[in-house]
Amino acid sequence: MAKKLAVRVDDRLIHGQVVTQWVKVFDAQKIVVIDNAVAKDKMQKNILKFAAPSDLKVNIYSVDKAVEVWNKNKFGPYNVFVLFRDVKQIKECQEKGLVFEEVSIGQMAIINDRKQVYKQLGLDQSEAQTLLDLEKSGMKLYFQMQPTDKKESLTILKKTFPDLK
């Protein structure tokens, strides 16, 4: 069972800020990436593993595999830093029984139908609704770009998406 667990959404997954700040602040011994597309792509998996320091264990799972491993050993006896590329896969994990208590929402590129919600964070209406639904289910969610930043509540979503339920 994971000694400590931190969960974050950052569409860049394993990158400089995660490695130099988040992993260190959390004292992570293992990174778990949960992403259905990356789990199927050998090249992306290799790039992400190469981006992590050699002393960190890195596992990359599809949602289904992550749920299976969680049910088996809760990601092992480590301080585990879990990364998602998007919020929809967190919802998919929840629907399959893998529920996280707390999730920090970081960068998601402001592309396509996404609107800027907070700093370098873009969401479309559906993603914003997914976050609110997760929060209503009891998950603690907040926006935070860097570990030194103040945690911002989801209430700022209403400024960009006033029709959210």
Rank of each mutant, 00 (worst) to 15 (best):
M1T: 11
A2N: 13
K3R: 10
K3C: 01
K4P: 00
V7D: 02
V9N: 11
R12N: 01
R12D: 06
L13I: 02
I14Y: 08
H15R: 05
H15F: 03
Q17D: 13
Q17H: 08
V18M: 07
V19N: 08
V19F: 01
T20S: 15
Q21K: 14
W22F: 08
V23R: 06
V23K: 07
V23H: 02
K24S: 04
D27R: 15
Q29H: 00
Q29P: 07
I31C: 00
V33K: 05
I34G: 10
I34N: 10
A37Q: 13
A39E: 05
D41R: 09
K42V: 13
K42N: 13
K45L: 00
I47M: 14
I47D: 07
L48P: 06
L48R: 04
L48E: 04
K49Q: 14
F50T: 15
A51F: 08
A51N: 15
A51Q: 10
S54N: 11
L56Q: 10
Y61F: 15
V63F: 12
V63C: 13
V63Q: 09
D64A: 14
D64H: 14
K65Y: 04
A66D: 11
A66M: 12
A66W: 09
E68P: 02
E68W: 08
V69T: 12
V69A: 13
W70A: 15
K72T: 12
F75D: 08
G76T: 07
Y78V: 06
N79F: 06
N79I: 09
V80P: 02
V80I: 10
F81R: 14
V82F: 05
V82M: 04
L83D: 03
F84A: 01
F84G: 02
V87T: 11
K88H: 14
Q89Y: 07
E92N: 12
E92P: 03
Q94T: 11
E95R: 10
K96P: 01
L98W: 02
V99N: 09
E101T: 08
V103N: 07
S104I: 12
S104M: 15
I105Y: 07
I105H: 04
G106V: 10
Q107H: 14
M108N: 12
M108K: 13
I110N: 06
I110L: 03
I110Q: 12
N112T: 13
R114M: 05
K115E: 14
Y118P: 08
Y118F: 14
Y118N: 14
K119A: 03
Q120H: 13
L121C: 15
G122Q: 05
D124R: 12
D124G: 07
E127C: 11
E127L: 11
T130C: 14
L131I: 00
L131D: 07
L134D: 06
E135P: 06
K136T: 03
G138A: 04
M139R: 00
Y142L: 10
Q144A: 08
M145G: 06
Q146F: 06
T148E: 15
E152K: 12
L154A: 03
T155G: 08
L157K: 03
K159N: 11
K159F: 09
T160W: 08
P162G: 01
L164E: 02
L164M: 03
K165P: 00
